[in-house]
Design a binder for these strands. Structure first.
Lengths: 91, 91
DNA sequence: CAGTATCCTGTACGATACTG
DNA sequence: CAGTATCGTACAGGATACTG
């Protein structure tokens, strides 16, 4: 699941801050991904217990995704990985 | 590169010990992957500076792969990730 | 042993249009 | 806004056979 295309990109903006992220925000930060792929990945991450999806009865719709405990612990690994990427980005 | 199918499986046996790994050993530890996919992934990892390939003038052929410095640092992240997987394997 | 070459197929994914 | 439905295609990757 975590090695699928797009998953890393979804989790990246969730690594740095604890505020929930909306669908549109993911879309904007994920150029090169279709809405279809994004929603599939989000659903997988939700079913995998990484993300919590919460929708509000508002017009226009508002849906927020936030990390679960499991997801937060995963981001620790991802942060570690991102540091490695940054460290070796020139090579 | 590191999220491609098979890459994680290639690096896993290199996480635990520092001894070089041979092609056939990868094959045996990677049921469900063809030789084609394996050699493509190995080449990518070599070109990405993760692995060093070293061949010996012997019959039968012997080729060994070992981690570079960059690769060793990457495995630190992967070990971290594997611990997370183990911790949450029941869910 | 350590790969390559070739052929073939499933599927992941984008583009587009649509909906509650 | 946050998705879903449909269609079409590129390409990842398996099976098999082959090579230095």
């Amino acid at each position: 699941m975590i090695t699928k295309r797009g998953t890393l990109e979804i989790l990246m903006p969730l690594c740095c801050n604890t505020t929930p992220v909306r669908y549109q925000t993911f879309r904007n930060s994920m150029k090169g991904f279709s809405s279809k792929t994004l929603s599939i990945r989000l659903k997988e991450l939700e079913q995998g217990g990484i993300l919590n999806r919460r929708s509000y009865n508002e017009i226009p719709l508002r849906v927020e995704y936030r990390l679960t405990k499991k997801g937060q612990e995963l981001t620790e690994s991802i942060i570690h990985l991102l540091q490695w990427m940054k460290r070796w980005s020139s090579t």
